[in-house]
Nucleic acid binder design. Sequence first.
DNA 1: TACCGCATGTAACGGGTTACATGATTGC
DNA 2: GCAATCATGTAACCCGTTACATGCGGTA
Lengths: 182, 182
Amino acid sequence: MKINKSRYAILGLLSMGPMSGYDIKKKFEKIASNFWNESYGQIYPILKRLNAEGLAVKTIEKQIGKPDRHVYELTRQGHEKLMEWLKEPVDRHIGRHEILLKLFFGPMISVNDNIKQIQQFQKIYEKELTDLKTIKETIKMDHNDQSHLPYWLMTIRFGELVNKALIQWSRESCALLEKMND
Amino acid sequence: MKINKSRYAILGLLSMGPMSGYDIKKKFEKIASNFWNESYGQIYPILKRLNAEGLAVKTIEKQIGKPDRHVYELTRQGHEKLMEWLKEPVDRHIGRHEILLKLFFGPMISVNDNIKQIQQFQKIYEKELTDLKTIKETIKMDHNDQSHLPYWLMTIRFGELVNKALIQWSRESCALLEKMND
DNA sequence: TACCGCATGTAACGGGTTACATGATTGC
DNA sequence: GCAATCATGTAACCCGTTACATGCGGTA
């Protein structure tokens, strides 16, 4: 059994207020880019389907000088579908980290080349850790009602802990490889 | 630009010795299930392509009472293609953890329902942590040459650190939500 | 008798990204 | 004059899983 997460991601954003496809993309980039993103290629067809299935209603807002906005609002059924999904247990998520695959075949290249790979990997997550600080500030500004903030901060904390673990692993692994070099 | 990781995963396994599609699947399950898996729907077509592109050669081993084995062996070009890829820098990997998406819309359901979600999430990674011990033992048996072992243990260590971080996050988050309940 | 392991493969489907098409306004 | 922002959408891909088809031999 396979469920479409993007569908629920969009349903979820709409639950916080009426929005257009364009708004949805921007919102994800602004406040959830640390763990989620959606492309227009997903968003627009999904909105169409949500509308067809009676989970959202569409209103067209005319604008002058700018294209029309197609604003979607959740129906009661939409809210219910979302809540159902929120209560369903999550399933295991396999990482498929490319660095692990490369390291798995480590002996094919030199120890130094492996060290370089890990160092580059480490840099990615060090940057991510500093980026998280910016997102944290952004969401503290953005939340309209009190209720979302604690949950949003949990997603930040998740990123902090995981990134720190990845950095620690990088340091450990490099140290190990450097010992092998002697 | 988009590269096919499965292709290189298979190329990598073949670099450790001639193998059939069936062997490849079993090998991944046995020694890399903590971070990688491939389905037959990927493996067989990829092997066909590797052969067509001159990266692997195919030999058919007849067996009695069992189906023929189509054994693939890397060519020199195959080895080179693999080494090239191993040296290419890895790119950022966005998690798309369903639990974070659900938590993001946490206020839609009760605090207790959110706690339940996190507890279930935590259980998954506690189990994963104990499973890692088994895999660790398996790979200590399985490695034929000395060279791979340290790298394989690094992939295990990766899992240990990340899973521990996820468990810690679960505990912290549950504690936070329980405080909100009062 | 029924299922599991061995072993190959394909077809259908669903998920997701990227590139493209359109077109007005605003700012450098 | 050029790029960016606003705003919608589609088509072509690639990636990946699942289900199915085939068929022998051993075990419970």
